[in-house]
């Protein structure tokens, strides 16, 4: 019952610098040993459960630090149960869910609601609280309360924090609770009504384009503010060459 072998899979674990074909022996819910498939001569007893992982990839439980479970408020798009099942099906064991729900996750009662709904789901759910009340970009949330009720980070993801002064205060204030600020790096006025990358494809399709600079300018700004404040910054969904270079240099 508590002995298990996962055989023949491609095992990938960057923490142990592993990428190859291994058999994994589990005892009492813990990995007991990992043996190279071709070197493994062990006999497996009949009391051991065997999972044939041939053709599959075996990884430690993955963590997605950026998901939208949409509950409360947008259950018609997704809810905590369906999002958790989807995550588990993709090999994830933990997710961080963003705060742009309705109402916004900017206080204890919403955070507790999410955590209660997440009980018994196949993945662990870590809520992310909002940076500003109602994600309106005006006043900071009670981050102390968010932290104590279970939030692991803060973010206004879905909308950028346009006011640089407010972003500075967010980085400063959140640092006392060891919660990183996850930035949705996009300049609203450069995005405009854009719906895809600016360039010949957008022009050909007659769609409004979004220049890469819309992301780059906010990444540059937030890096400067992180440096100024010593706050912890996480840049969400990086998608341009410019921001990769900025982040690499800043690190």
């Amino acid at each position: 019952m508590n002995r298990l072998v996962i055989k023949g899979g491609r095992v990938v674990d960057p923490a142990q610098n592993l990428d190859g074909f291994y058999n994994i022996y589990v005892m009492g819910g813990r990995v007991a040993s990992i043996k190279k498939v071709e070197a493994d001569t062990s006999e497996v007893g009949t009391d051991v459960d065997v999972v044939d992982a041939t053709g599959l990839v075996v990884v430690p439980g993955l963590i997605d630090p950026h998901v939208h479970l949409r509950e409360p408020g947008y259950e018609y798009k997704e809810d905590i149960a369906t999002g958790s099942k989807a995550a588990a099906a993709g090999g994830f064991t933990a997710v961080m869910c963003m705060a742009n729900t309705k109402p916004v996750n900017d206080n204890e009662s919403v955070t507790r609601y999410i955590l209660k709904k997440a009980e018994g789901q196949p993945v662990r759910v870590f809520p992310v609280g909002a940076v500003t009340q109602g994600q309106k970009g005006e006043r900071l949330t009670e981050m102390g309360e968010l932290k104590s009720s279970g939030c692991v980070a803060v973010s206004d993801d879905g909308v950028p924090i346009s006011d640089p002064g407010l972003m500075r205060r967010a980085l400063e204030y959140s640092s006392q609770f060891q919660m990183p600020v996850i930035t949705h790096a996009e300049d609203s006025s450069l995005v405009g009504h854009g719906s895809m990358n600016e360039g010949v494809v957008a022009t050909r399709l007659g769609l409004k384009g979004i220049p890469n600079a819309a992301e780059d300018v906010i990444v540059a700004r937030d890096i400067a503010l992180a440096e100024l404040t010593g706050g912890r910054l996480h840049v969400a969904h990086v998608s341009t060459r410019g921001s990769v270079e900025l982040i690499r240099r800043a690190k």
């Binding site: 600016e198 360039g199 010949v200 494809v201 957008a202 022009t203 050909r204 384009g209």
Partner: peptide, 8 residues
């Protein structure tokens, strides 16, 4: 003048 219009 939209980006890349010359490619049309």
């Amino acid at each position: 003048l939209p980006a890349g219009i010359e490619k049309l």
